[in-house]
Design a protein around this nucleic acid. Structure first.
Lengths: 164, 164
DNA sequence: AACAAATACTTGGACGTCAAAGTATTTGGA
DNA sequence: TCCAAATACTTTGACGTCCAAGTATTTGTT
């Protein structure tokens, strides 16, 4: 719903009046939270007709980028930075829909491989096209704004120890 | 876990190799998604000792900013931009903990007011201090990066029709 | 005044995320 | 070689979000 004032700007004013600290951090965190809500809603809506959502699409896309279309489940979790239990859940759903198969690892009995099926590869490509069509849910944000967001968040991701 | 490469940068390269479009939008969306995951994890961890999480803290903070510490549930949802069912759930939890009370609206029988208790007000203040202490989960992101993020996401929020 | 449409909130259900715990397997150190 | 520690994945449970549907009330139109 459309408000007649910017709720984040008002929150900043309220926060200031209350004498609470870290206003710039508060607006940044709240902005990111709202942006995520907007874009994930848009992305999931765009993928729904394909029977996918962002999480499931990301697994398909990741597998499609590998040479043989397969990866250990743990690697999937590492690359997508999600919890192992979430990987299990996501792969369960994809397997149920025939987009992915589970295979034992050839030499490590602890490990399971997620293997992209032809149906899954095709679905990944259609999902990619659908997402490009809606600009990944960030339509309305200019090219410069996107680049600045990338750079700004790179600082946060780096500080959080995402990569060296 | 720390990877030896930036997963978003690698995704961009993969996406490009696959000939898929809207790479700049993809990295922006994925960056925001990751940033949200980082900051919400940090925020909820900081609030957990107070028996709160971000959603519940936000309701307490919003109520504390009003003149009488009370708002209709629907207004809470509008201001915080969350679904009515989520407001119900959040207020249920806060009421159970004694931070908020429900009151009928004086003249509109459809409407329920969420009323901040003294205990809730005190908890809001402690939560605010805890969040300021961790810079709202965006520690590691400089002041300029925060401002740029705000501005960039303002474009998205505006385009999404959040306010006029 | 009567009635349809809109509004307000709740309930029930689905869902994806994460934590904790558990089992099986592999690795590394003594 | 043996065993403790680490690794890999799954299961269970809790939780917050949103959708859809439902009930009660208010508003707007005729």
């Amino acid at each position: 719903m459309t408000l007649e004032f910017d709720p984040i700007e008002e929150a900043a004013a309220n926060w200031r009046s209350a004498g609470w600290g870290a206003i710039d951090a508060m607006t940044a965190a709240t902005s990111i939270t709202r942006a995520h809500q907007i874009l994930s809603g848009r992305i999931d809506a765009a993928l729904a007709p394909l029977g996918l959502n962002f999480s499931r699409f990301e697994v398909l896309a990741l597998l499609s980028f590998t040479r043989e279309g397969k990866l250990p489940l743990g690697k999937v979790g590492d690359r997508l930075q999600v919890h192992p239990a979430s990987v299990t859940n996501t792969v369960d759903r994809l397997e149920a829909d025939g987009y992915v198969r589970r295979e034992p690892h050839p030499s490590d009995r602890r490990t399971t491989l997620a293997v992209l099926t032809a149906k899954g590869r095709s679905r990944a490509e259609r999902g990619a096209a659908a997402l490009a069509d809606i600009e990944f849910g960030v339509a309305g944000m200019g090219a410069r704004a996107r680049a600045e967001t990338d750079q700004a968040i790179l600082e946060l991701r780096s500080a959080a120890g995402d990569f060296v």
